[in-house]
Write a protein that binds this DNA or RNA. Structure first.
Lengths: 229, 229
DNA sequence: CGAGGTATTGAATCGAATCAAACGTTGTGG
DNA sequence: CCACAACGTTTGATTCGATTCAATACCTCG
């Protein structure tokens, strides 16, 4: 399970019905906005290809990254509560997305309990993912970075190649903004892991070589799922 | 808006119907479990009085606190995704809660679109709250503690007294576990704020004296909600 | 090719964790 | 009701790690 968005499909056997709620499919270039913080909430966005970061600006112009999203992930649910998007979303590369009217989606979910359940599930999953991120609050930079890389890896293995190789579409700066640390510290963690032969990095391409070592790094934040009597 | 749970009521004009989904109302003493990490998910819990912490144990027995909940908050939505509670919940004092069957709640929400919308809203709110917490990832201990206190204050002002005075039902240890810092650092932040006449603390009772100073502390993580052209 | 942004590396500073000890509070049983 | 034990909290001194500042190397794209 990824730190990131949903592995649950909205559609399944009801995919036909979903045609009604898709407003349009958009192709966006690198660095374009999907939605902007403060805009009225009306849609959620389903990524088809590419990747997106969500973030908000603090009063001093520094941006805090709240998440990275890839194919099949859904962006925008956080706008339901207030009726406004609390975050901006920007593409990290050329990206195609489906704009889905939330109003229509919600109406359709009344007719299709399965759809409603899926929405519940996706939102629940986002809560769980965010809480897993929060477990990083107290941990050091190595753990944060390792956890980040493992999440990305898990996210890609799910549907794409089962390989340990993938591409970081976001900048080191974005990673830092996501994990709450500086660019320099991100870079240092990368070089350190590389020297220890845990990963191999070349620019934006990364491969995880030593999964056991990687996993042992994050032992401290993995939670036992046992029920203790 | 609080860092914590929901300010949105499940019921409103439909409160009559909710009688059907409430399994039972429980009174728990201090330190009792509401639900346990790993148990099969079947219910959400609505707090009537008292307070609760949610947490999970990592492999080394240290607990990470994922949230504090008070009257009218709802605990347990994170279990929808996997079908198991990913967290344990424990009372911080004598607490009364309603156990609500999620299965029944979901079925009822099919008949009452308003109810469904409220559930969406509450879950969306939790996503937003968690993301606000995540903004603390990169900030120092003073900011974390100030942010925590302001959230609690906002949470209580909402419905209880409009006073700047409240009681911390959780231990310093719990606060540390929540904010990702040690007990000592929490304590030091408290004494520092007190020396600066920003707050007044006596054991578990706290009053916020200088709100402007408190707010200026967290300027760095407040996000502008403006739409920039 | 050159320029601007992005990434890496190094040295010095600052802040939080850690270790250790004293102080307070709470709850229990004599 | 007091004494004591157990736990929670505060405070201090030291260590360790991340940020900061600064300089250099690397890529990407016009």
């Amino acid at each position: 399970m990824s730190l990131f968005c949903s592995s649950v499909s909205l559609a399944n056997e009801h995919s036909i019905c979903l045609g009604d709620v898709i407003e349009k499919t958009l192709v966006l270039g690198k660095g374009e906005f999907v939605c902007r913080q403060g805009q009225a909430f009306d849609s959620v966005y389903v990524l088809q290809t590419g990747s997106v970061k969500t973030f908000n600006m603090n009063d001093l112009g520094k941006e805090h990254i709240t998440g990275f999203y890839h194919a099949n992930d859904i962006v925008g649910f956080s706008g339901i509560d207030s009726g406004y998007y609390p975050i901006s979303a920007k593409t990290l590369e050329t990206t195609t997305i489906c704009k889905v009217s939330f109003h229509k989606l919600e109406k359709l979910s009344t007719e299709i309990p399965y759809l409603k359940h899926q929405i519940f599930k996706i939102m629940s999953q986002q809560i769980v993912n965010n809480q897993r991120m929060l477990a990083l609050l107290g941990s050091g930079s190595d753990i944060k970075v390792a956890s980040f890389l493992l999440s990305l890896s898990a996210r890609f293995n799910r549907e794409d190649s089962p390989s340990d190789f993938f591409r970081l579409t976001m900048s080191r700066n974005d990673i830092g903004g996501y994990l709450g640390m500086t660019v320099e510290t991100v870079s240092r963690a990368f070089t350190k892991f590389q020297k220890e032969n845990i990963i191999k990095i070349k620019g934006k391409d990364i491969s995880i070589i030593d999964f056991p070592a990687m996993n042992s790094l994050i032992d401290g934040i993995k939670s036992t799922s046992l029920v203790k009597a």
